[in-house]
């Protein structure tokens, strides 16, 4: 029971054009850049410029010539040289890339599953009428919406190894490479377990009570209830949460930027931070674009894995 008629395009097109202009165009542009070596050249020239007074009239000297002053003119020019697939080849052999990929993979494969597991367990634990549950739900919203950059710096002060609140543990939260990676994962778990919890709790509460009742009457144990009733019911939700978390975790940027600066060394520098630094700190724009495309490809793989499921939920 859906309408047709050409006015539908008028409703839809502004947003489509917008996305084409600000997402698809930059993506195309960056694919183009990925095949170039872009060098920034700064030319400094000195020029004699006539001096003018407040009325804009040229001031003349004794001989009737215009008085001049020297002005330094800085000209930035980008020189782009087509180098074919050179940037992509460089990606494969670059040890920095290798380390950043390793950091990203370690981060994703620890943080995401733990967030889902903790979120799921908490949701099951609190899927009952206990005193103060609305308050608990409100509290769980705080980490999700707390500015990630502020969170990173706050955890920097918490993990501070001299005089910080956790200094008594003696754990090298920031100074040791593995310790720092652990800390970064811990912060992500702190920030995103609540998200998993809230979504799973919402899904559990949309399950009709009769289902639990029927299982209970059939004499199902608590474990059977969990594995044979709850898990199958929550499967679509779990997949959506997993997709969203995987996609977000691949973008991971703010926390290492603020808390560890990617360090010590490059121990907590994920791929997105490396790409950002390559492009916008060292201005190796072509290489950074190639990196961005590699990350894009990885994200596309994740999306494709879930694409069918995702489409079904928007029927």
């Amino acid at each position: 029971m859906r309408w047709t008629g050409n006015i539908r395009f008028l409703f839809l097109f502004p947003a489509v054009v917008w996305v084409l202009a600000f997402t698809v165009f930059p993506l195309g542009y960056s694919l183009y850049l990925a095949f170039f070596k872009i060098e920034q050249k700064i030319e400094v020239k000195r020029e004699k410029v006539p001096i003018v007074d407040e009325q804009g009239k040229v001031i003349l000297d004794d001989q009737g010539q215009a008085r001049t002053k020297n002005v330094v003119i800085k000209q930035e020019t980008n020189v782009a040289t087509f180098i074919g697939a050179e940037n992509f080849k460089r990606l494969i052999s670059d040890p920095q890339v290798k380390e950043a990929v390793l950091v990203t993979l370690l981060f994703v494969s620890f943080a995401v599953p733990l967030e889902l597991i903790f979120g799921f367990l908490l949701a099951i634990l609190f899927n009952q009428h206990i005193f103060g549950r609305p308050l608990l739900r409100s509290i769980m919203i705080l980490p999700i919406f707390a500015t990630p950059l502020a969170v990173g710096y706050t955890f920097f002060t918490i993990f501070y190894e001299v005089g910080g609140p956790l200094a008594w543990t003696g754990i090298p939260f920031l100074s040791n490479p593995s310790g720092a990676l652990f800390s970064v994962i811990l912060v992500d778990i702190w920030q995103w377990t609540p998200f998993c919890f809230l979504v799973f709790l919402a899904a559990l509460q949309s399950v009709p009570d009769e289902l639990y009742e029927a299982a209970h009457v059939d004499g199902a144990s608590r474990l059977a209830m969990l594995t044979q009733v709850m898990l199958p019911l929550l499967k679509p939700t779990i997949l959506i949460v997993l997709l969203l978390r995987l996609a977000e975790a691949l973008k991971f940027f703010d926390i290492p930027f603020s808390m560890t600066g990617g360090g010590p060394g490059v121990a907590t520098q994920p791929f997105s931070l490396l790409a950002f630094r390559t492009g916008l700190r060292f201005f190796d724009l072509g290489y950074a674009s190639a990196m961005a495309y590699a990350l894009l490809a990885a994200t596309m793989v994740v999306i494709m894995l879930f694409f069918r499921r995702l489409r079904e939920s928007y029927d």
């Binding site: 600000f22 997402t23 930059p26 996609a247 724009l285 674009s289």
Partner: peptide, 15 residues
């Protein structure tokens, strides 16, 4: 669009 890594568009957008 939401799932795309923003770092993929940041360089061309900057330019």
């Amino acid at each position: 669009q939401r799932v795309l890594p923003p770092v993929a568009t940041v360089v061309p957008f900057y330019l």
